[in-house]
């Protein structure tokens, strides 16, 4: 869910952009190091960005019957790592604004923070935590992907609530309103996205175990196919 162009007041728009800058800079730095070590990486990231863009345009059958689009933040973070997702996310969000008029230039910083920073870092942290708790691979992927999606939406609601506090109830009431309205579409979407990510990883484990091992997503003994 993208905040539309011009929706946030100027201070918030600038503030979120400034907050996102260190993550993007760190991501670019880590990408540069990866490219120096392995030149093939430079092609990989561009292709990964295109993949994320196309994935986000797919229609996902949602539990309530309405169609939604997956965010792909959980999948991308598990495959490419959370640091690389900030620059990839920047390009994808910029392209969504420029090619689909989805999101915007002034709200790029806020959208980037919720989708390409909070979502991916949450996904990887949750995945590591659930793996450490010895939950199965499928359950870990489901929790990581669906909660990453869910936290992205919570962050967006918090951004909107902070920018537009309720005249009587303040930020808390405003958060309840935004989160309540978007919950109708976002909670089923988070569940569908979690399920989809599990199906994707199952298909990968079945047909392409070598690629999964190369990406360090799973430990070698776990891929049995």
């Amino acid at each position: 869910m993208h905040i539309m162009e011009g929706f946030l007041p100027i201070e918030h728009a600038v503030g979120w952009a400034v907050a996102s800058v260190p993550f993007v800079a760190y991501g670019i730095g880590s990408i540069k190091k990866q490219i120096e070590a392995n030149l093939e990486q430079r092609m990989l990231l561009g292709v990964a960005a295109a993949f994320t863009f196309v994935l986000s345009a797919l229609k996902l059958p949602s539990v309530t019957g309405s169609c939604s689009h997956p965010t792909g933040t959980g999948l991308g973070a598990l495959l490419f790592g959370p640091a690389a997702m900030a620059p990839i996310g920047l390009v994808v969000l910029l392209f969504q604004a420029l090619l689909l008029a989805h999101g915007g230039l002034t709200t790029l910083g806020a959208n980037l923070f919720s989708m390409a920073i909070v979502g991916p870092f949450a996904a990887v942290a949750l995945f590591r935590l659930t793996r450490r708790l010895r939950l199965s691979f499928a359950v870990s992927v489901f929790i990581a992907a669906s909660l990453a999606d869910f936290l992205t939406y919570v962050t967006t609601s918090a951004q909107l609530a902070w920018a537009f506090p309720d005249p009587t109830g303040g930020v808390v009431a405003s958060f309840a309103k935004f989160a309540g309205i978007f919950a109708i579409t976002q909670i089923p979407l988070a569940i569908s996205e979690g399920l989809l990510t599990v199906v994707i990883f199952n298909a990968l484990a079945r047909f392409n175990p070598q690629e999964l091992k190369d990406m360090n997503v799973v430990n070698p003994p776990e891929v049995s196919a």
């Binding site: 990989l44 990964a48 599990v198 994707i200 298909a203 990968l204 392409n208 690629e211």
Partner: peptide, 20 residues
């Protein structure tokens, strides 16, 4: 959901093949 999962998994593998 199953078809979409297959489609996305197939695309994921293409990321590495095409980049290579």
């Amino acid at each position: 959901l199953r078809s979409l999962g297959g489609l996305a998994a197939n695309l994921t593998v293409q990321v590495w093949q095409r980049a290579h």
